[in-house]
Nucleic acid binder design. Structure first.
Lengths: 353, 353
DNA sequence: ATTGATATTGGGACCGTTCCCAAACAGTAT
DNA sequence: ATACTGTTTGGGAACGGTCCCAATATCAAT
């Protein structure tokens, strides 16, 4: 009579109960506390014998700890919530990629929510993330839910903003040094001989990075003595007709050589489409510079000059900042601004004809 | 003496304990079971009075249920794990976007993991997702961890593959009808008068969608009576020098008009870069067609002809399939293949000069 | 042998829910 | 009244871990 003949049939694999810390303890002939310690930071309390026995049992049973159960009493979910306005925006994509890497490094996992620029959906997502007791929040949204966020923050939830501040929310922020980035742009264009500049942007709608870029643009253009205009789209996704009309109007305003500055990558795409619809060979007649580097910028026309943000680094640092806040006690909110880098291409080479 | 003077000081907001179902029950003067029922599907057991009182208490205390605690006993985490090979790939981005929408609709949240084409990292991520007791898995990876996945599947974890089958894993799959997509491509190119075709692809490495595209390409080119060559990169990210050499070689092989077929969007980008490095005005000398539509394809040269997959729908349907598996008992694995749509542009207009 | 100090180990309450089952409460038929 | 339905309600064990604290073991010093 040996244990090799179980008296109850093995359940079908598909419903086999997953082994618990309890099973491991029994199998190893130790207490569950010891098994728990094996995974936690009290591990060095355990004797070598104990470790061996536990390891063997874990191996035998194929045990893996249940993070859900663990976070209930243990208070650490290992979850970080990300709320982004548009997960298809190339900026967001690269930012998330950086964030994912940092998360992995620190042992966190990402719960990703897309709001599609819908404020109510954003609130809903914040509620869900609250439900999962995320340990921190990474936020890149329109910022219309400052009150909800402030409440969570007061409850002790660490959060870091990406790319933009939110009014009424004293909070860490990681983003671009917009003054420097616009400075690079404007001085490059002026150096190239352009005499009038047009910035196209999405609706500012209180979004700090958009504001900052416009402000910097106007100041620096004025300082450099060139004409500057800013046109702000009516909707978050720029209307093609509006854009075409705006560009056409601006183009025929003057004979002086001019260049367009696109306030971000999405705008660059839209403006390119509009220019090609409007003109046969647009870059012979107008300069173009985009903030945000995109994979295809070198391919269009003579190549589009861009000012690149280190987007991956921004996401990565945002998580680092968040993790720091999670494990350290409160301190003054800080902003971390990265410099941009200009890549000159043909779209800002003025043809002297 | 009233309750308005608490005898213990209120804790700082930042450490205030979050209210529990228990607090709500006490405040409403009902049992915690009733409060629990308020959220669960036994809700209709509750009388109207009860509902009112509970709602009022929830409101007063700002209670929100703790999903972690709830999933411990309740066995439903509401979490779906996604494992993707490359979260920056435009395909992945749009697929995830579709998946996110479907998840929201069904009340699930996404735990996103990026493997960066690293098999070991993939295993690690699978372990993490197992730890969180995700209810299902969405997988778009190289497929080297079939054994690990099969084990999870035997344990009863539902999973759905996206874009590619994995050998040794009997599993639902949602992807592209590659035969149809390649058919569109080849017949379009043949119709345009191209006499020889070159397909560029990443290393096949057992990835089913790549295999399928190559197979279909060779068969259909043969059937149409045009020469066809397939060149497969050496590394997952195509080496620029290798690509340049390959293209140059192919271009000078013959005078007959030829076209390049890029097996996916990432390849299209790489090939464009290579072509522009190689030739002044590439599309005068060679046709180009890309599988996968990209935002910029209309902008490059005369516009690049593409065969678009409905990527968002693919992600959306994958989640729907997964959710179906989660709530229904096992059935035969199914494949859901979407048709592609061709957008002709200038890159496949043969110049008769 | 006795004591004290230190290094390991174990027991059991607890985390915030869900779920099983029994209790309380109708209302209706005897 | 009594019994017998059916509808609501509540009590307490469970879920799988963590953590506090007490228990035991070890060993050197008295």
């Amino acid at each position: 009579m040996t244990a090799s003949i179980p008296n109850h049939p093995p359940e079908p694999a598909s419903e086999r109960r997953r082994p618990t810390i309890h099973d491991v303890a029994r199998d190893a002939g130790v207490s569950k506390t010891s098994v728990s310690r094996y995974y936690g930071r009290e591990r060095d309390l355990l004797s070598d014998t104990m470790i061996e026995r536990i390891e063997a049992a874990i191996e035998r049973l194929g045990f893996a700890p249940d993070r859900i159960a663990s976070s209930l009493r243990g208070r650490r979910t290992g979850l970080i919530g990300v709320v982004v306005a548009d997960m298809r925006n190339p900026y967001t994509v690269d930012m998330l990629h950086g964030a994912e890497q940092a998360c992995r490094k620190h042992g966190y996992s990402l719960l990703v929510c897309n709001t599609g620029n819908d404020d109510q959906l954003e609130r809903q997502h914040l509620e869900i993330l609250h439900g999962y007791s995320v340990e921190g929040l990474l936020i890149n949204t329109r910022g219309r839910n400052a009150a909800t966020l402030a409440a969570r923050q007061d409850n002790g939830l660490p959060m870091v903003l990406v790319d933009r501040h939110i009014d009424g929310l004293a909070c860490d922020m990681v983003g671009l040094d917009n003054d420097q980035a616009v400075g690079l742009s404007v001085s490059h264009l002026v150096d190239q001989g352009y005499q009038r500049l047009l910035m196209i942007t999405e609706p500012v709608a209180g979004i700090s990075s958009r504001e900052a870029r416009i402000q910097a643009f106007q100041h620096q253009a004025q300082a450099a003595g060139v004409l500057a205009e800013v046109h702000e789209g009516l909707e978050e996704t720029l209307d093609a007709a509006w854009l075409a009309a705006t560009l056409e109007q601006w183009l025929k305003t003057s004979e002086a050589p001019g260049a367009i500055v696109c306030a971000n990558g999405v705008i660059t795409l839209a403006v390119c489409h509009a220019l090609f619809a409007l003109l046969k060979s647009p870059f012979d007649q107008v300069g173009l510079l985009g903030i945000d580097e995109l994979a295809w910028c070198a391919l269009v026309g003579p190549g589009i000059t861009t000012v690149a943000q280190p987007v991956g680094d921004i996401g990565y640092s945002a998580i680092e900042a968040l993790v720091h806040r999670i494990s350290h006690t409160a301190s003054e909110p800080q902003s971390l601004l990265f410099p941009a880098h200009l890549t000159p291409r043909g779209s800002t080479t003025l043809n002297m004809t």
